[in-house]
Design a protein around this nucleic acid. Structure first.
Lengths: 214, 214
DNA sequence: TAGATTGTTAATCGATTAACAATC
DNA sequence: TAGATTGTTAATCGATTAACAATC
C-alpha cells in the first residue's frame, strides 16, 4: 500500500461503499469483476473506480479484472477494519441507547464497552449487557481501558465539554451525533453525524422535485 | 429567490450549517454579520459564504453585511422549513424507536405520525405517543394520510421492498438508515444515513492520525 | 499470440478562492 | 462623502472523466 500522497476525503468516503458491494458479490459467489462490470453495479464510472483503487496500489490484473475476495480484504485493511476498536458512549438517552443496542458494529470490530450519563436513575442499568456508568468517571475509564472512540450522544450544549474530557483522556476518535461542530486537537479524528442537517437537505430536495413537476 | 440554475449539492449541504450558526447568533442577540466575521465563526471562506448565498439572491447589503434574522429566515425558506412534513417510520427496532423518541425534529416541522412493523408483539404499542401499526397497512396509511417522508429503519434485506411500497403509495422523500443504496423513481428524493460507512471512515482517519505521529 | 482490461497520463469539468467594481 | 462590504467575474485548484499505452 502506497502511503506517500494524501488521499482526498472524497475517495475515502467511497471506500465503505465499494466494500459493501464487494461483500454482496462474495455472497453471490462471484470471484472476479472488471471495473466496467463494477461500474454498472455500483454507479461510479469505471475510470473513477480504477483511479480510486490505484491510490492505494495496483489491486487488479490487466486482462482479468479485480479479484473480489482480494479487493474486499485490501479495502478492509485500508479502512483499518482489521483491528478492534473500543468505544464508549457519552449520553444514555434514546440515541445513545439505540447505538448501544445496535450490535451491527461488532461484526466489523467496533465494540461498545461502556455508556456514561449524569442521570442517577440510569447509572447502574445495563443496556444490551453494557453498563451505564457515572459520567464523573468517564475520563479515568477511557484512560484505564484504552478506549479508542468516544461516541457523543449528548445535547449540543454538553457536547464540547464531553469532547474536551475525552481528548484529555487520550481518545483517538470521536463519532459526534450532537448538532454542533466540535473543536479538538489535530491528532483526534472527528466524524459527524448531523441527523437534522441530513433531514433538512432531504426537505430541500423534496421541494425541488415538486417544483420540477410544475 | 432565483430558481433558474441548478444549485450544486455541495452548497445545499452547507445550508443547514449556516442556519445553525445563525440561530446561535440570534440567541446571542447579534443582529448583523459580515461575510468576514461569519467566516471566522463558521470556518468557510468569506468568499464561499457570499458565493453560496448569492445562488439564491442578494440577501446582504453593501457596506453593512447580512441581517441575522433575515438570513436565517431566508435559509429556512430555501430548505423548505416553512412548512410541515408528515413522516412515518418503517421498522420499530432500536433505531426506529430512537428516531420516534427524538422529538427534536418537531421543532422544525417534521412530525412522526406512525411506525410500522411486522412483529405482532410490537404492533399496538405506543412509542412517544406514536402508534406502532401493522406493516401490512403501510401503503394505505401513506395514501390516506398524505405522508410526505418515509424513514427506513429496517434491515438491509427489506429496505428495497419497503422503498418500493412507499414510492407506490406516493411518498415524496425517503430517509434511509439501511446500509443499502435504494433505487427509486426520479421524482422521489432519497437521503441516506449510512452509519456504518460513517464509522468506517472515522476508523480510516484515526489510523492516518496515528501514522502521522510516527 | 490476440483480446481484455488495468494503470496512468492528459483533458475536462466543477467547485472554491481571489479580486474588484458596484453600491449601500 | 468616505468607508465598508457585498455581488459578481475571473483565476485557481481539485476531482472526475477520457484516452491509451502497458501488460496479463
Amino acid at each position: 500500500m502506497k502511503k506517500d500522497a494524501k488521499i482526498s476525503n472524497a475517495v475515502i468516503k467511497r471506500l465503505p461503499r465499494y466494500r459493501r458491494y464487494l461483500k454482496e458479490l462474495q455472497k453471490k459467489g462471484v470471484d472476479k469483476i472488471s471495473s466496467n462490470e463494477f461500474s454498472s453495479l455500483i454507479g461510479y464510472t469505471a475510470s473513477q473506480i480504477r483511479q480510486d483503487l490505484n491510490n492505494f496500489g495496483g489491486f487488479g490484473q490487466q486482462g482479468y479484472g479485480y479479484n473480489v475476495d482480494g479487493l474486499y480484504n485490501e479495502i478492509s485493511a485500508i479502512l483499518g477494519l482489521d483491528r478492534e476498536y473500543k468505544m464508549i458512549i457519552a449520553g444514555a438517552g434514546n440515541l445513545g441507547q439505540a447505538i448501544a443496542n445496535h450490535t451491527h458494529y461488532y461484526k466489523t470490530g467496533f465494540v461498545v464497552c461502556g455508556i456514561f450519563d449524569v442521570n442517577p436513575r440510569l447509572i447502574g442499568l445495563k443496556i444490551n449487557d453494557i453498563e451505564v456508568m457515572d459520567y464523573e468517571n468517564i475520563e479515568s475509564y477511557v484512560k484505564q481501558n484504552q478506549v479508542n472512540i468516544g461516541i457523543i450522544c449528548t445535547t449540543k450544549d454538553n457536547a464540547q465539554e464531553v469532547a474536551d474530557k475525552l481528548c484529555h483522556a487520550g481518545i483517538q476518535g470521536i463519532w459526534n451525533f450532537a448538532p454542533v461542530d466540535l473543536s479538538v486537537p489535530a491528532h483526534v479524528a472527528v466524524e459527524n453525524v448531523h441527523l437534522s442537517d441530513s433531514l433538512q437537505s432531504l426537505a430541500y430536495h423534496m421541494n425541488q422535485q415538486a417544483d420540477l413537476e410544475k
